[in-house]
Design a protein around this nucleic acid. Structure first.
Length: 477
RNA sequence: GGCCCGGUCGCCUAGUGGACUAGGGCGCUUCCCUUUCAAGGAAGAGGUCAUGGGUUCGAAUCCCAUCCGGGCUACCA
């Protein structure tokens, strides 16, 4: 049997980091089995649709390097892949269940349902549908459906249990009496999620159902629907949730959760994928750095764990630095492109890449680190110019002595600049370290950053000398 | 309230009855390297394996109970 898996997001917002993790696991599983991965859009709730959500899914996953075989834009044997375009399929299936007696039309108004629930709650009972329309005469009910607003409900047995052997969570059983008569078709003619997933997964030949842990409680409903149709239940596997710092499902209020945000913040897709893969899965060895290909080679669904994992931005940042350092210089320069102003001289940027690389945590950090090479003045204030334990007079002396030492220096490169500054240090009876610290703000406008000698060389003699003078003027003022 | 799931250092995790004096990574501290900052190297602090009972010669690992956390409980997904 050829593996066919799917990921099925609802277009209710930008692509969420949690969906990416689920998609990643699906993608790896498909790759490992030479199977097919498909994208299905679950837009059965017309009230929650968000403009541009599908674009966000496509853009985000393409950026991450996860591709799939069938979907709304790529088509496929089971098109359409958008549930709102498949309404007749669900209607037809719902009709079959009504005919077989497994489901029934329900004419109860939302108001009545609310009242029932409220009354039950007051009496301290479990709130659930009271079965009001369950015993209606089928013929009479059928005629009423012609002109009366209604939903279709699944007839859930009152007795017994239903069980699942989940690939990740193991054997789970639910008492049927804890399950409500689930709505299958809504009164607006759209199916509920429960009907739509089961029908589509079956009809589209899905061989493994993988999704987030939060779906576990709904699974018995789905099992019941499979049973009502007389279909085999494909293996299910639930993945633990990605959590916020408060242990609740990761959500907007916890900070950045949109893939797009991480992209603009300067994270590498390699790092995001690597980090994400390790939330809820581990190889059982001490290896931590994994490319997509390496994940395909080592990931095992048996090693996916049950407990939810908290989102840890610091750890993601560490992975990002690791991946940035693994990039070739040309590649890094290319990735930096969207983060740099257009007018910055790319030749200078390229020259700076080797010393920049190990100082980056995100690509966005490059701008701050390189800025001093491209602005006319760095405008350090006097407080910044004078390091602790130094007087302004001392700094002025170092500055002016350096100016002299650099004025006729040839070639104007990091090595000779170092020698020149060693001379300055010796003259002033200082260590090279103290000299560097005293010079650093004058040249870069900052207390720390790229190496000074390279920075001066990159800056060029004219501008370096100008900055040394500017700093002296500022200290004199 | 009901049903279900989970619970190893602050965080991600290894561990599936004996090699566990519970291992690795992030973060934190210190040191080395060093032109600042990083990166790199080394060391360290940090865990009564949620708690209490069992089972066993032996339990983080098996069983029971308790506690805590979470998910679901919609004509949302």
């Amino acid at each position: 049997m050829t593996v066919r898996v799917r990921f099925a997001p609802s277009p209710t917002g930008s692509l969420h980091i949690g969906s990416v993790r689920t998609t990643l696991y699906n993608w790896i599983f498909a790759r490992q089995h030479g199977g097919t991965l498909m994208l299905r859009i679950e837009d059965t709730d017309q009230d929650r649709l968000v403009e541009g959500a599908i674009d966000s899914i496509y853009d985000g996953l393409r950026w991450m390097g996860l591709q799939w075989d069938e979907g709304p834009r790529e088509g496929g044997r089971f098109a359409p892949y958008v549930q709102s375009e498949r309404l007749p399929v669900y209607l037809e299936h719902a009709r079959k269940l009504v005919e077989s007696g497994a489901a029934y039309p329900c004419f109860c108004s939302k108001e009545r349902l609310d009242q029932v629930r409220k009354a039950q709650a007051q009496r301290g009972e479990v709130t659930r549908y009271d079965g009001h329309c369950r015993s209606l005469d089928p013929k009479e009910a059928a005629t009423r459906t012609g002109f009366e607003r209604h939903v279709i409900r699944l007839k859930v047995p009152d007795e017994g249990t239903i069980a699942l052997d989940d690939i990740v969570y193991g054997h789970i059983e639910w008492p049927l009496k804890s399950i409500d008569d689930q709505v299958l078709m809504k009164s607006d003619g759209f199916p509920t999620y429960h009907l739509a997933v089961v029908v589509d997964d079956h009809v589209m030949g899905i061989t493994h159902v993988f999704r987030g842990e939060d779906w576990l409680p709904s699974t018995p409903k789905h099992l019941l629907i499979y049973r009502a149709f007389g279909w085999d239940v494909p293996p299910h596997g639930h993945f633990p949730n990605v959590l916020g710092p408060d242990s609740k499902k990761l959500a907007k209020r916890h900070g950045a959760t949109r893939v797009e945000q991480f992209r603009t913040d300067g994270f590498l897709p390699e790092a995001l994928l690597n980090y994400l893969a390790l939330v809820g899965w581990s190889p059982g060895t001490e290896d931590e750095i994994f490319s997509l290909e390496q994940l395909v080679a080592t990931w095992r669904i048996e090693h996916v764990q049950k407990a939810g994992g908290k989102w840890d931005l610091e750890r993601l940042r560490w992975f990002n630095g690791m991946w940035i350092r693994r990039l070739g210089h040309e590649e890094l320069a290319a990735r930096l492109e969207p983060f740099l102003p257009d007018h910055w001289d790319r030749a200078v940027v390229r020259a700076a890449v080797p010393i920049l690389q190990e100082r980056l945590v995100t690509l966005a950090d490059a701008r701050d680190l390189l800025e001093f090479l491209f602005v006319v003045l760095v405008e350090p204030d006097a407080a910044l110019l004078v390091p602790k334990k130094r007087t302004p007079e001392e700094v002025v002396a170092i500055l002016s002595r350096t100016e002299v030492a650099l004025r006729y220096l040839e070639p104007f490169e990091a090595g000779p600049i170092r020698s020149a500054l060693e001379g300055v240090a010796a003259d002033r009876g200082l260590s090279l370290r103290d000299t560097t610290i005293a010079l650093y703000p004058a040249i870069t406008g900052k207390r720390a950053g790229l190496p000074l000698f390279d920075g001066i060389a990159l800056l060029g003699k004219e501008r370096a000398l100008a900055r040394l003078r500017e700093a002296q003027d500022r200290l004199a003022a």
